[in-house]
């Protein structure tokens, strides 16, 4: 009986120690959304259960190993006790009760996390190997509906954002640790568009990560998220909605950022998943079939709209998306070509 008493005290002490360690030492990232608050509440419940069960089993085992070990020169067997039906029933029924309760609160937190706000702003998220693009619907001052694309996800604070997730090739997953939620992104058009609701509550800069392995560039499939005040968000959106009134090459840079070109093509001469754009225009390029072509205007244009036509030696086919002629207007493509030309020398 004295053994049970000591073990009982040790279990309580160990539970408190472990529980405080898990809940108070910041092993979860910063909270930056309403959803994170709800989810972390459930995490804390889990942490206390983990602390209790680890303490219970480990204390009994470690105590037994010390107190009930076979001493030097000792012979014979342990105490003969082969089981206790009542005890077995208790440690079956009680856990059933606990897990059912867990499941009930699990369901409740889930419905909190996914609660719909009819006022939510909609952002279309386009994921492709290996870049992100975020598209907003805006009405301009002239009352024209237009779409604004960005490579940065800007969200207003304290307003629910409804992200509609589109993939253009394979499965990706939208994940911002500070928001605590993620959702896989499926290819295949409207039927496969999935939704994710986030209510950011802290201004700051975060990172969207792709959380589902999507090929060799998976590790670098990142994008910036900015949570800003509502007013700042509105003015940012208005600014984006204005036509690109810069030079062709400067507009080209903007589209190259927005549509993820720079995820694979560097501007500083380093070889990434695709060839660099620095010093490309006007120079000779060796292809996989051994021939050599000059990177002129037509070559650049073809490489964007039909990327498999000419593969540069040392690079893989089927890596670049083949639908840029659908995603971009003719003007935008020409501006990107103008931008690459400007990097020629």
């Amino acid at each position: 009986m004295i053994h049970l008493l000591i073990v009982g005290v040790l279990v309580v002490v160990a539970t408190l120690g472990l529980g405080l360690l898990l809940t108070q030492t910041g092993i979860l990232p910063a909270q930056a959304s309403q959803q994170a608050i709800t989810i972390d509440w459930l995490f804390d419940i889990h942490f206390w259960f983990i602390a209790f069960f680890v303490a219970l089993i480990c204390v009994i085992i470690v105590y037994s190993l010390i107190v009930f070990r076979r001493k030097q020169g000792e012979k014979g067997d342990g105490v003969y006790m082969h089981g206790n039906q009542r005890l077995e029933i208790i440690w079956t029924i009680v856990p059933i009760g606990i897990v059912l309760w867990m499941a009930v609160i699990g369901g409740q937190t889930l419905s909190d996390v996914e609660r719909r706000d009819p006022q939510a702003i909609t952002v279309d998220v386009f994921a492709s190997q290996w870049s992100w693009r975020f598209q907003y619907e805006v009405t301009t001052a002239e009352g024209v509906q237009t779409a604004v694309a960005s490579d940065v996800l800007v969200l207003p604070r304290n307003q629910q954002a409804l992200l509609r997730l589109h993939s253009q090739d394979v499965i990706h997953s939208f994940y911002v640790p500070e928001f605590r939620v993620k959702q896989d992104i499926l290819p295949g058009g409207e039927k496969y568009v999935r939704e994710l609701r986030i209510t950011p509550n802290t201004n700051g800069t975060y990172t969207v990560q792709c959380a589902e392995i999507c090929g060799q560039g998976h590790y670098s499939m990142l994008a910036e998220v900015q949570v800003v005040d509502g007013a700042e968000f509105t003015s940012w959106l208005t600014e984006q909605a204005a036509d690109c009134n810069l030079s062709d090459a400067e507009c080209g840079l903007r589209w190259a950022e927005t549509f993820g070109c720079l995820g694979c093509h560097s501007l500083d001469g380093t070889a990434k998943i695709g060839p660099t754009w620095l010093g490309l225009f006007g120079h000779a390029v060796e292809l996989t079939d051994g021939s050599t072509v000059t990177a002129d205007h037509n070559y650049l244009l073809t490489s964007i709209v039909d990327p498999n036509a000419q593969i540069v030696a040392g690079y893989q086919p089927n890596v670049m998306p083949q639908n840029f002629d659908e995603l971009l207007s003719e003007e935008q493509i020409n501006q990107i070509v103008a931008f690459i030309e400007s990097l020629g020398n």
Binding site: L42, I50, V54
Partner: peptide, 26 residues
């Protein structure tokens, strides 16, 4: 036994969907 215990107690946070939204694929 001790290692499997860790495997056991880390299961429920993955089982309740809300917490799995954070932990999945990490």
């Amino acid at each position: 036994v001790v290692i499997f215990l860790l495997g056991g107690v880390t299961g429920p946070p993955l089982a309740t969907i809300a917490t799995d939204l954070h932990l999945h694929d990490t």
